[in-house]
Design a protein around this nucleic acid. Structure first.
Length: 317
DNA sequence: ATTAACGCCCGCCATC
DNA sequence: ATGATGGCGGGCGTTA
């Protein structure tokens, strides 16, 4: 189960990473069919805790309240070294089988505690090399948004923490509940679909713009049939090279990406209009409702109608 | 829901 | 050597 979440408020904590945990786990969303968690804040020395921005927060609880937490969240922080007492909490949580989530440089706390030894992990791309060097027993994945290894989840820079937090919600409570939170936060329910454990990060390569223009053109022509052969011709490449370089740059294959974009657009239309599913299927390039349904079930694990029922505009009356 | 034809993706590899 | 290219075959996801 996932009920009690404890946020380790380490001195030098970064406000954004702190806030993102509050946003995901600290708001009662039961009024819109979403989950409700118990979010608590723990620090080694209760009282004023200075953040990385110089602003100080008052934290009342000490680390003892973390003893029965279902999830320990470790946001980024800029102070070093970290107090041994935090490391103890982290080790204890892993030993108990509780979830542990780190965001950005928070991964160093987990590594320091030793719970990353023999595991896969990630951190902000600026720190991946340092993490790997300092902790040789850890397999560091660069170029991913987050990594789950057992119940230990590490995430890359800042906003990837949102993806990782939602991932945990999805694992424990299902995609529906995670989507409610995502929708309220106005973030994509899951960047890239599927239940892939490793999500390609957009920060991998730096020649993003080479395929960005092609991608943009594809988006404008979603309704049309877009065979790879035609796309390749437009990009002045052979089909083989186009497919290969598309995957290298975009992290997915052309058709997979295309289907994902079509789903995203269909989601918008289902949410914001009352057009029939058949019409939306035609307008998004799926062609027929059955094809659209096929992809919805595969990626979102719901049907178009069920999706609309959950997120669609409640028409007055 | 099941099936069959189709198109895509990727490993392999000769080539540039 | 090193690295990108693109044709081919076959497994597999998508579409009818």
């Amino acid at each position: 189960v996932l009920r009690k979440v404890v946020l380790l408020t380490v001195p030098g904590v970064m406000p954004f990473e702190f806030g993102l945990i509050c946003e995901v786990f600290g708001i009662d969303r039961s009024d819109v069919g979403g989950p409700r968690f118990e979010l608590a804040f723990a620090t080694a020395n209760p009282g004023p805790v200075r953040t990385s921005q110089g602003v100080t927060m008052i934290i009342d609880d000490d680390l003892s309240i973390a003893a029965d937490a279902d999830l320990i969240a470790v946001p980024a922080f800029d102070s070093a070294p970290i107090d041994e007492r935090y490391l103890h909490v982290i080790r204890d949580a892993v030993a108990r089988g509780a979830w542990v989530l780190s965001i950005c440089s928070g991964a160093f706390a987990l590594a320091e505690a030793g719970v990353l030894d023999g595991r896969r992990a990630t951190t902000h791309w600026m720190h991946t090399a340092r993490l790997a060097a300092r902790h040789p027993l850890t397999t560091v994945d660069a170029d991913v948004l987050y990594v789950q290894d057992g119940k230990v989840v590490t995430s890359a820079g800042t906003s990837a923490g949102i993806d990782a937090a939602l991932h945990i919600v999805r694992k424990e409570l299902g995609a529906g509940q995670a989507n409610v939170i995502a929708r309220r936060m106005v973030v994509p329910p899951q960047r890239d679909g599927g239940q892939a454990q490793f999500i390609q990060s957009p920060v991998g390569g730096d020649r993003i713009d080479s395929f960005a223009s092609v991608a943009e053109w594809m988006l404008e022509n979603l309704v049309e049939d877009l065979p790879v052969e035609q796309l390749a011709r437009k990009a002045h490449m052979s089909p083989r090279t186009f497919a290969r370089r598309f995957r290298a740059d975009m992290g997915t294959t052309p058709t997979a990406w295309l289907n994902r974009q079509r789903i995203i657009r269909a989601q918008q239309l289902l949410e914001q209009t009352s057009r029939p599913v058949e019409a939306i299927a035609a307008e998004t390039g799926f062609g027929t409702a059955s094809v659209m349904r096929h992809h919805f079930v595969k990626v979102l694990r719901t049907s178009p109608t069920a999706y609309r029922r959950m997120f669609g505009e409640r028409l007055a009356g």
